[in-house]
Design a protein around this nucleic acid. Sequence first.
DNA 1: CGCTTAAATTGACCATGGTCATTTTATTGA
DNA 2: TCAATAAAATGACCATGGTCAATTTAAGCG
Lengths: 193, 193
Amino acid sequence: MARAAQKRTLETRARLVAAANAVIDEVGYQGLRVEHVVLRAGVAKGTFFAHFRDKDALMELLIGSRINTFLDQIETLPAPQSVDDMTDALMPMMQFMTCERYVFDVIMRYSGAAACEDIGTIATTFGRQIDVMISWLADGPFRKDISAELLAEGVQAFSVQAMALIFCALHNETDLRARMTLYLNAWLTPASW
Amino acid sequence: MARAAQKRTLETRARLVAAANAVIDEVGYQGLRVEHVVLRAGVAKGTFFAHFRDKDALMELLIGSRINTFLDQIETLPAPQSVDDMTDALMPMMQFMTCERYVFDVIMRYSGAAACEDIGTIATTFGRQIDVMISWLADGPFRKDISAELLAEGVQAFSVQAMALIFCALHNETDLRARMTLYLNAWLTPASW
DNA sequence: CGCTTAAATTGACCATGGTCATTTTATTGA
DNA sequence: TCAATAAAATGACCATGGTCAATTTAAGCG
């Protein structure tokens, strides 16, 4: 049996990804059309779907790898010793995640594993976020009555809530940081009551 | 200028909604096709879009009104005096919200105001949820170091997180209640630390 | 080399949501 | 009762994501 010719495949895929990035630079994630990508990459439409299950799969890859870049950066930081520091550390990533309504929707849709079989790129980044935060929370000046893992899940829940509120009619982007610190103070350093 | 003939409009709209509900009973929310709805309602496709901006607008209406029914029920309940009671009160609504992956996605997408101009049905239900919970939290055995409003926002954030995890590869539906109580205990009754 | 075969590619085609110029219906005023 | 006219409905048409049988390309092998 003839074995796979992988080189051509890899090249085509790289060309598709490069074309997609170029298109996004011009018209944003929301404005991307599969037709424009394949035109730019010089391949037929069918080829696109031989490489990506659907348009969302490409989006997941592109958005997920951007998030991974932010997480690489975040991982180099020392463990934050205050809620403000933690918010500072997370803000760039959260800003990207909310750069477009469409981007945030894709992230939400794939933040759990989209398909049960394979954990997608974005779902993986959510796992990485939890891991980073667990390491932060283990030895910071934060509540210790519950596990670092649960604490981290809470931080994620609140960051999602804060991001979602950006797209509400009544709120705007400048509120993001303020809302994050409000939430995290209440979650990570509850006063006795 | 001739005034509006409203009767026919209302009838047509009612027929579309009835047809949509019938279709959903057969194939679920996910399986609904605009073509099937208009065929069943006996109107042209264009008529559908004269009554609803797009397919999502119909979905928002149908899903939103189901949620409102659950909230009507919830509002008749006495204020829960424990995290378990609160979870019990919220469970039926949360179960509906996660009855289909597609339904949950629609709810998430419209939980903030989808369009900035008009607050949609689903966004309104999220506001109602907050209001109900504020009334519960004002005089329950829960932490009092932060405002009832902030507390309510947190409950919402955690319920979204708990629901989202249902669709993760690693979790299943039976975990929903357990995760809710875990989250809410940590949020509403933090131990001193 | 040329043959065989599996992988990769192609593009015509389909499914479905959404648009809009045209036609139908009903209301209003004389 | 009948124009005038605004609201409602129509359906041909479009945009775009996605499919698949047929074709091309490139290994592997004697």
